[in-house]
Each structure stands twice: as structure tokens, then as C-alpha cells.
Simulated assay, not measured.
Amino acid sequence: MSRRSTTAPKRFATLGALAALTTIAALAAAPAAQAGAMPGADKHKPGICKRVPAIDTRLGKAIDRLNGAAAVKGSIAHLQERIATADKLNRPAVKTYLNDKLATRQRLLPELQKRRTDLASVKTWCDAQQPAAGK
């Protein structure tokens, strides 16, 4: 008798048993996975509600940086100091470039402050939301 004919039924039996064990393990683990997901009510709120704290932190850092002292890189005061230095060293091209950057940052600051107040109202709305049932 050939070797192929005797090992094939053993392979199929092994594969069948492995498939059955995998199915049983998956069915047993499914309720445990669902039970673990339920306790956190914040998991079921709209996506923006989960991101509010990170967005608020990021906006706060950007506003603080723009309002920073002249020693803070990225601040409006630091850029004004660089413009004064470029003017003193008679570099009109650099001064023009930095003035454009300054204008952009000065427009950005009120926009970021408005976004932060808008985000506060979103946080209030999120706090009033009930968790979605069944998700």
C-alpha cells in the first residue's frame, strides 16, 4: 500500500479537529469580548467627544506659543524681534518675508481662540449626550 493513502485520512482528521477547536474557542471568547467592551460609557459617544480633550490641549499649546515671550520660538513677539533685527541689518527681503509670516500668525491667533470657545460648547454638548445603546 502506498504511503500517500494512509496519511491523507490522518491529515483530514487532524485538520477537522483543529477547525472544530478553533470554532469552539471563538464562540467561547465572543461573549467575553462583548462583556469587556460594555463598562466604558465614553466608548459609545460620538467620535468628536472622544477627541475633545486632545483638541483642547493642542489648541491651548498653540495659543500659548503664539502669545509667548520673545524667547519663545514661534511666538508673535519672537517674530517681531526677528523683523527688528532684519531691519537693523538692512535686509529688506528677509523683513518682507517675516512681515508676511507675522501677518499670518496675527490672523491665526483670533481664529484659534474662536475655535477654543467653540470647542467648549462642543464639550458641553458631549457631556449632555447619552451613550448609544447596543454599540
Rank of each mutant, 00 (worst) to 15 (best):
Ser2Leu: 09
Ser2Ile: 10
Arg4His: 14
Ala8Asp: 10
Phe12Ser: 09
Ala13Met: 09
Leu15Pro: 04
Gly16Val: 04
Ala17Gln: 13
Thr22Gln: 05
Thr22Met: 09
Thr23Ile: 12
Ala25Cys: 08
Ala25Tyr: 06
Ala28Cys: 02
Ala28Asp: 05
Ala35Asn: 07
Ala35Phe: 13
Ala35Ser: 07
Ala37Arg: 12
Met38Ile: 15
Ala41Thr: 07
Asp42Leu: 05
His44Trp: 07
Gly47Thr: 10
Ile48Lys: 06
Cys49Ala: 04
Lys50Asp: 06
Arg51Cys: 00
Val52Pro: 02
Pro53Thr: 03
Thr57Gln: 12
Ala62Trp: 08
Ala62Leu: 07
Ala69Arg: 03
Lys73Trp: 07
Lys73Asn: 11
Lys73His: 12
Lys73Pro: 09
Gly74Thr: 01
Gly74Ile: 02
Ser75Leu: 01
Ile76Gly: 04
Gln80Lys: 13
Gln80Arg: 15
Arg82Glu: 15
Thr85Ser: 03
Asp87Ser: 13
Leu89Cys: 00
Pro92Thr: 09
Ala93His: 03
Val94Lys: 03
Thr96Lys: 11
Leu98Trp: 01
Asp100Thr: 13
Lys101Phe: 05
Leu102Trp: 04
Leu108Asp: 05
Leu109Lys: 01
Pro110Asp: 01
Pro110Cys: 03
Leu112Tyr: 11
Gln113Asp: 10
Asp118Glu: 15
Ala120Thr: 15
Lys123Ile: 11
Asp127Trp: 06
Ala128His: 12
